[in-house]
């Protein structure tokens, strides 16, 4: 075999080894979480790292689904995350577009002020936000949580969307305007379809933030009316108990909507990127 071919084959195998390693690195914790969720609690406590196929069952899953309020909490999480994504994208896209296209005095200041908001740790705003939500009777409501999350996701959304709009040449919109489109029409018809991948990516990041938050969910909710799943997960951990089987089963179940969401949005993102009009 020629040395060039050998080198190519070697590189090919090494690349596969590397990819396999990375995949295992990412999947093993998930696999272990799933494996623990199938084991009995006594076995987990006594032999935490033992590998066994004895007495594995889906009892924890059926228990969580039937006997706990977990399905309600997942529903709440889905509602709050969707509302946050919607609100953040609507406001963030409009603001990002304006900051990208409009040249006005103090534009940099506005952008920087959004960045400064991102730099403030959420925990510092807990008490003021709690008081505000109380005054507006928004404690323990979907809207209360959505507004609180949007406070933190909006600056990032604006910055990201501004970046996506910046990458589009204004000439595309100018051409549309010459053909009779208004500015808003040009944005809606020309720019927005081109930044769909960006919208998908930003929406995903926003959804993850809202989906995983525990701090604000604990503070701003007090009943199953609006409580989200991370709060339910946290409530399982007691001072004198750590029910690994239930915790891991809950974690796996709460991953499912995210995995499904990623699978759907991921395709959109890739399709959007590869179908970019500027490449033609």
């Amino acid at each position: 075999m020629k040395p060039k071919k050998v080198r190519k084959k070697f590189s090919y195998y090494m690349a596969n080894v590397g990819i396999t390693g990375l995949v295992l690195f990412a999947i093993l914790p998930l696999f272990w979480t799933f494996y623990v969720s199938l084991r009995e609690e006594v076995s987990i406590t006594r032999y935490p790292t033992m590998l066994t196929t004895k007495n594995l069952s889906f009892l924890a899953y059926t228990h969580i689904w039937r006997d706990t309020n977990f399905p309600v909490l997942i529903r709440n999480s889905l509602i709050v995350s969707s509302m946050t994504v919607l609100l953040s994208l609507v406001l963030g896209t409009a603001a990002g577009y304006a900051l990208s296209r409009a040249k006005f005095k103090g534009r940099q200041g506005v952008l920087l002020s959004y960045l400064v908001i991102r730099l403030i740790p959420g925990v510092l705003l807990l008490v003021p936000i709690y008081i505000m939500m109380y005054k507006f009777h928004l404690l323990d409501t979907y809207f209360g949580l959505t507004f609180a999350y949007t406070t933190f996701t909006l600056p990032a959304t604006i910055w990201l969307m501004k970046g996506f709009f910046d990458s589009l040449p204004p000439d595309l919109e100018n051409a549309a305007r010459v053909d009779g489109c208004s500015r808003l029409g040009a944005m809606w018809r020309i720019s927005l379809p081109l930044v769909l991948p960006g919208l998908a990516a930003t929406g995903t990041l926003t959804a993850i933030t809202a989906w995983n938050d525990v701090l604000f969910a604990i503070m701003l909710t007090s009943s199953n009316k609006s409580r989200t799943w991370p709060v339910g997960l946290r409530e399982m951990i007691g001072e004198f108990q750590l029910p690994w089987q239930l915790l891991t089963a809950t974690a796996i179940m709460s991953l499912l909507p995210v995995v499904i969401g990623f699978a759907l949005v991921g395709r959109k993102m890739v399709a959007g990127i590869t179908a970019g009009s500027l490449k033609e």
Partner: peptide, 23 residues
């Protein structure tokens, strides 16, 4: 009775906020 669970770790944070808001 309207009963709410507040996890032990988050107790004081929520108590402080509730006291400040008188809620």
């Amino acid at each position: 009775l309207d009963i709410t669970t507040v996890t032990n770790d988050d107790w004081m944070t929520k108590y402080i906020a509730a006291t400040a808001a008188k809620s």
